[in-house]
Amino acid sequence: MEEGSRQSFQPTPEELAHRLVGYEAEGSRGPEALIAKAEKAFDRLHTTLSVFLGSKGFESLWARAMLLAQQTLQAEGLEEGTALFTSPERWADAAGTRDAAQAHIILHAQFASFLSLLFTFIGEEIGLRLIRPALPDIPPHEEDSPTEDARL
């Protein structure tokens, strides 16, 4: 997308993923802090979107996104062991196989893949509106809902 073409703040899935599992290299620290952050982000997304999608609907969408993420990571030469990262239950175990920087790449790709898939189905604008409760720091859209006068 060309610079300046967005009328309001419309972060990309990658930018949103960065907000969810942002990582700053801090010396030789392991990936535990990152994993904890990712788990919280996952829980927030799950809680928020399950209202709309249902829990099973969310999990199904996540599973599909993980498959797509693995394909992306394979293209980047990181396919080995990435399957371990497909669900939060396995993240803690998987962390032992990667350093923090590699774990960040994988988790970032997974969250970006999930959001991208969500946006593919329902568009960026509605997708952002639905995940906003999970990401309260996203600036609101410029476009407001219709006024009261126009309706009931």
Binding site: G57, I126, H141, S145, P146
Partner: peptide, 26 residues
Amino acid sequence: LKILRHQQQMDFFESSMVGDSIHFID
């Protein structure tokens, strides 16, 4: 997911109302 995907094609659909004036709950 499909309801939202399909209905947003209609002229009356206003994305800005989703999550604000309209809430979908499964």
